[in-house]
Design a protein around this nucleic acid. Structure first.
Lengths: 200, 200
DNA sequence: CCGAAGTTTCAGAATCCAATGAAACTTCTG
DNA sequence: CAGAAGTTTCATTGGATTCTGAAACTTCGG
């Protein structure tokens, strides 16, 4: 929305004939809207997803103000959102960039561009939020200690909880293994795929 | 809440000394509350997660009314929720059960008890909702056809989209492979884990 | 075919959650 | 060190979403 002269946020200084800046903006907008929509389904606030989408697709550092105007969301939102994205490791502050920002002290924000890192970061964040609590709290849903004497119904109950716990622990271990395989997530996962192909 | 004589919903007919029915109810309540809480983080309505939790942990078919009273949620909620759970394949209608329900035509609802199936069903549902759209719509976020002539910025843009698409397709393929390995999800995943262990 | 028991629907109420934006705060430049 | 530019915070607002519950509908036994 916030219609602005397209050139401002591109930093193009007669680099190209800039015939199709609007095409790019349109495509960016589509991507931003789509990513924002997906965000809501992924349990991420729309505005946060949008800011990330913008930074990712722009591929260059932007200031809070530029983000604010481009997405027409409030200062507060942008600030909160940027902090969170930074905490997640998806966005980095990057002072000065390109020709601009000489005398400025404005802070710029730049999104991780490696899609594998992006994917992995998201996965880790979701695991922390949606999975780890399972392991942490499920135990408290048992009737009694493992060793205690129980009647049939109690045993049944605890068995179900234990089955869930076992399942969770298994996937937790799997996730940890993958995450420990360092930068080789991609490699590991591809090997994994190959293996699966041969199993089926 | 909705305090009711504990015996009613258990169908126990002098089977056991029933000394600790309340313990079980308490544990069930903990589990239900917890599962409901997790549900909200998983993008599932609290009441839906609670109904599922109850049916799962109870391990026996319950009628809509029993669910309603036990969880003290409204008729409408229970109905909607059961329908959805049934669509997802997590709950089955099961007419009559045990000694009761002879002359009745009340419908009973029973939750899938196999935790692996449970897990897999959830995963599939989430994939449909959170992942498949990515592959479907991401292409529309490109600037132009792959073959079209582009300037640098356009090429950059489309390359990012394509990288995302590739990543998504990869995981989609992975998921499909796993899902096609029939009932052997558990087996496949465990093999996979072993493999990863040896890779790291 | 009638009455009873159960289920579903849907408009409105209540709740929850994210976005706003002005004010407070921080940090840099001159 | 003062002033300016930028960033963060937080009470309030607004929007969206879920839950309710009475009424309509369906199905079964007699």
């Amino acid at each position: 929305m916030a219609a602005r002269t397209a050139a401002t946020s591109s930093g193009n200084r007669s680099t190209e004939p800039l015939p199709a800046i609007d095409d790019i903006r349109a495509a960016q907008d589509r991507f931003i809207a789509f990513w924002g929509e997906m965000g809501t389904r992924w349990g991420v606030q729309r505005s946060m997803a949008e800011v990330h989408a913008l930074l990712f697709i722009a591929g260059e550092p932007l200031s809070a103000e530029e983000i604010m105007e481009r997405l027409s969301i409030s200062r507060g939102s942008v600030s909160t959102t940027l902090r969170q994205l930074t905490e997640w490791g998806l966005v980095q502050r990057s002072r000065a960039k390109d020709g601009r920002g000489r005398g400025e002290r404005r802070e710029y924000h730049e999104a991780e561009q490696d899609v594998w890192k992006l994917f992995y970061t998201i996965l880790r964040a979701r695991k922390r939020r949606e999975f780890d609590p399972l392991i942490e709290e499920l135990g408290g849903c048992r009737v009694a200690q493992k060793t205690a004497r129980k009647n049939d119904r109690q045993r049944q109950h605890d068995q179900k909880i234990d089955e869930l716990l076992e399942l969770c622990r298994f996937f937790d271990g799997l996730a940890n293994t993958i995450s420990k395989s360092g930068k080789g997530i991609e490699r590991a996962t591809k090997i994994l795929a190959k293996l699966l192909g041969s199993v089926s």
